[in-house]
């Protein structure tokens, strides 16, 4: 923390009150209620019955729920790992070569971040449609054997959703890493050059360690986004075909409002919250250690 601010002021509570009131009523209280509901078997209408930790046990024991969390892990590969690898390469190029049009490139790759996810989903549904442009492209390349309705395919629906994640997270990761790389002092590169390091060794010895903090932030943002995937699945596949693209957030919605298993939905929501807290906390610890 920075220097202790000002002298003691009791008026501070007045400034905090309005924000805290909204926050407490619409976030803190509901998360408490979520924990409470998660301990019951409740259909949302009649009286619930006490279930203890059954709803939490089901997350591990129930095959469908285990699959949903498993799918979230697969999405992490597409949302976090792939953008990190691609982003590192792109940022290294942009930082290293004095390319023209950097501003334009940044505008373009960051654009997916600001487009409503529902719009993104509508666009990609079109790309993946049986008569969509992906199949047209494959056909033009003479790869007709590969064409299919991507989002209706048991094997390919989840990776297809994942690629959309790669598409919209890579720009964010690239711009983030680029900001970090532009702060690396040139003298470090010159020293590496003098030691006879090639471009590849330079990347691993100088660039990569210098952007550790940025990598941590990028991973936090993208992993959480992967775990929270909802809009995209809702609009593109609704968890299908079968349950091949079911994810935790969609299960929360589906169980609470589709199946009338509100207790189970709350338990998934609480579990998701805990997982997100643990990941954020862990990665922030990692970043803090670096700055101190």
């Amino acid at each position: 923390m920075a220097a202790p601010p000002g002298e003691p002021r009791r008026v501070a509570y007045l400034y905090l009150l309005p924000a805290f009131a909204v926050y407490a009523v619409f976030l803190l209280y509901p998360i408490g209620r979520a924990v409470q509901i998660s301990l019951y078997d409740w259909d949302g209408l009649s009286l619930g019955t006490w279930a203890g930790l059954d709803n939490y046990v089901a997350i591990v024991a129930d095959e469908g729920l285990r699959a949903a969390f498993g799918h979230a892990l697969v999405l992490i590969v597409f949302y976090a790992a792939a953008p990190l690898v691609i982003g590192l390469a792109l940022a290294a190029i942009l930082n290293h070569a004095k390319v023209r049009g950097l501003g334009f490139f940044r505008t373009v790759v960051f654009l997916p971040q600001v487009i409503a996810m529902v719009v993104v989903a509508v666009a990609w549904r079109r790309v993946y449609a049986p008569d969509g442009s992906l199949n047209a492209l494959l056909g033009a390349l003479g790869l007709d054997a590969l064409t299919r309705g991507w989002l209706g395919d048991y094997t390919f629906a989840l990776p297809a959703v994942g690629v959309v994640g790669t598409w919209f997270e890579t720009g964010l990761v690239t711009v983030l890493l680029l900001a970090g790389m532009s702060r690396i002092p040139l003298s470090l590169y010159e020293a590496a050059r003098l030691d006879g390091a090639g471009a590849v060794r330079e990347f691993f010895a100088v660039t990569l360690p210098s952007v550790r903090a940025e990598i941590a932030v990028a991973l936090t943002l993208t992993v959480i986004a992967a775990l929270r995937t909802f809009d995209l699945v809702y609009v593109t596949t609704r968890g299908g075909p079968g349950d091949s693209t079911s994810v935790p957030s969609y299960e929360v919605y589906h169980r609470a409002f589709g199946l009338g298993q509100v207790g189970s939905a709350a338990a998934i929501g609480v579990t998701l919250t805990v997982v997100i807290f643990v990941i954020s906390f862990g990665i922030n610890r990692f970043a803090d250690r670096r700055t101190s």
Partner: peptide, 22 residues
Amino acid sequence: LFYLFMLGIMMPSEAVAVPLYF
């Protein structure tokens, strides 16, 4: 109080939306 506010930054809306609805 500050840490309490920080929890809200990370809290996924799907976890609170269900109890809030009911």
